[in-house]
Design a protein around this nucleic acid. Structure first.
Length: 482
RNA sequence: GGCGCUAUCGUCUAGGGGUUAGGACGUGAGAUUCUCAAUCUCAAAACCCGGGUUCGAUUCCCGGUAGCGCUACCA
């Protein structure tokens, strides 16, 4: 049995951020690589800012990304007793003490210190309070927080799997709060208690927690628990190298789903943000990613989120997936856009799959289905102005397209081959280049300048639609410019 | 301010005491012709600065600078 147990522990104070998604992915990849267990834990100890809607959103995004968890989700809000018990134990053993200072007065002190440029740290003024003092203050109705007693001398040293040897002097760490005066545990206590309780072997989390790690280590020691290994993952930045935020664009993992990004492309792209297999491989499908994954390959410097590269990965995956693999994703997208036709999974399924196959090479995202490729699935498709400008310039086109429609209509065994024959023969007869007709017809049939081979388009659309759209285009061209 | 971490093409990165410093995205040019946002080819593009160590640093050490993180009774 493998002893590796990792966890992803988001706090439901917002949607799943791409940084969080990447952290979840790294945990998941590692668990899958070594046959470990991936635990999901919701850190909702901040009751004020947490909500069940956010929990649902996070779970949904995780599921979309395919990052299935083996245990959980566990909710810290339901495990309060565990933390309280630990805090009591810590106090009994002298590792923690009651602090009756009021947050606002402490805040005042801190502000003052900041103003005078002095470093601020809680001075441990309540350390020396006796049980008698406690009784007296309790009688006065004062509330207290529980603080951890950080040793005066020495330092915390640990070895981070990605950052190597790290050392923090004790005097840099203040006596941090374990239990707030409202009786609720803080993040520091609950993470450590849970990581112990859930037998977490590797803590893989964002590098923003590197500076918190010494506090956690102190707690592990005080609680007499085995120490997990730590691997801190560098942060993801926006294009201006500041922490990725809304002003850089979409930060919610779910937003990429909306954009038509495939989950597997997202996984591949995210995996390479702060990790490398050590060779030149980049395009790696998920099984290969798992196979190649290692904590040692994580880099130490933060990475800029590059949307263009994500889009490139996505276009690659669009090609990699078969029409059958695409089918359910396409259905979801069509339904979402309100233009799903149930026939496509019934009598027209073969046509649907074939058409998917046809348009796939030019698709960069699932959204192209209802965007650039809309004309394949609906009759109300927009006419791209640039396409019109480019290929509908020739004055003869109105007449030519109308005649071409007639030629096409006259074909008995209509398919790509016979359509091509008809068009080329007609071009010769009319003394125009086939390209002129082909390009103009493409715009007529799809509304786009870019589309698959015209004759394949004709075949997929069928004779009737082809003729109808050719005639409609001729009409538009005849009508005075509007 | 204090503490910590980081620093290779615009971006993601490989590499490492002696290399033409490799790959990918993006960019530019060409090929292809039935369009290209497909495909192929080619090109431009990087070791933050200053000291040391060394025969030799981009690589090791120190300092600087910059960026980021932490510095809460947020997580």
């Amino acid at each position: 049995m493998s002893a590796v147990r990792v966890r992803f522990a988001p706090s439901p104070t917002g949607y799943l951020h791409v940084g969080g998604a990447r952290t979840a992915l790294f945990n998941w990849l590692y668990a899958r690589k070594v046959g470990g267990v991936f635990v999901l834990r919701i850190e909702d100890t901040d009751a004020e800012r947490s909500s069940t809607e956010m929990v649902d959103g996070i779970l949904d995004s995780l599921q979309w990304l395919g990052l299935n968890w083996d245990e959980g989700p566990f909710f810290q809000s339901q495990r309060k007793d565990l933390y309280l018990t630990a805090a009591r134990k810590l106090q009994e053993k002298g590792f923690a003490y009651r602090c009756y200072c009021h947050p606002s007065e402490l805040n005042e002190l801190r502000l003052q210190a900041e103003k005078s440029g002095k470093p601020w740290k809680y001075d441990g003024r309540c350390t020396a309070l006796s049980p008698q003092d406690h009784q007296r203050l309790d009688a006065e109705g004062r509330t207290f927080a529980v603080r951890f007693r950080v040793p005066q001398e020495g330092a915390v040293k640990f070895q981070d799997i990605v950052f190597g040897d790290v050392e923090f002097s004790h005097d840099q760490i203040e006596d941090f709060v374990l239990i707030r005066s409202d009786g609720l545990p803080t993040f520091h206590l609950s993470v450590v208690v849970d990581d112990i309780d859930m037998h977490i072997s590797h803590v893989i989390r964002g590098a923003d927690h590197l500076s918190n790690t010494p506090k956690h280590i102190l707690l592990f020691q005080a609680l007499d628990a085995p120490m997990p290994a730590f691997a801190h993952v560098p942060l993801i930045l926006g294009p201006d190298r500041s922490r990725l935020s809304k002003r850089h664009g979409a930060t919610a993992a779910g937003a990429y789903r909306e954009m038509g990004i495939l989950a597997e492309a997202m996984r591949n792209f995210l995996s390479l943000l702060g990790w490398s297999p050590g060779d030149n491989r980049e395009l790696m499908r998920t099984p290969e990613l798992i196979e190649a994954y290692s904590l040692e390959g994580i880099s130490r410097s933060s990475a800029v989120f590059d949307l263009q590269k994500l889009e490139w990965f996505n276009s690659q995956y669009m090609q990699l997936l078969t029409a059958e693999e695409l089918e359910p994703l396409a259905k979801e997208k069509f339904i979402q856009q309100g233009c799903w036709n149930p026939d496509w999974e019934g009598e027209s399924r073969q046509w649907f799959l074939k058409t998917l196959e046809l348009i796939k090479p030019r698709m960069r995202s699932l959204n192209d289905l209802t965007g650039a490729s809309r004309a394949f699935f609906a009759d109300d498709f927009p006419l791209d102005m640039a396409a019109k400008e480019k290929f509908w310039k020739d004055e003869r086109l109105s007449e030519l397209l109308s005649q071409l429609a007639g030629e096409i209509d006259g074909i008995d065994a209509f398919d790509a081959t016979t359509a091509e024959q008809a068009l080329r023969t007609f071009a010769d007869k009319s003394g125009v280049k086939a390209g002129l007709l082909i390009n103009a017809a493409r715009v007529a049939l799809t509304g786009q300048a870019v589309a698959p081979s015209l004759f394949a388009v004709m075949e997929t659309l069928g004779k009737a639609k082809t003729v109808r759209r050719l005639q409609a285009a001729a009409q538009i061209l005849t009508a005075p410019a509007s």
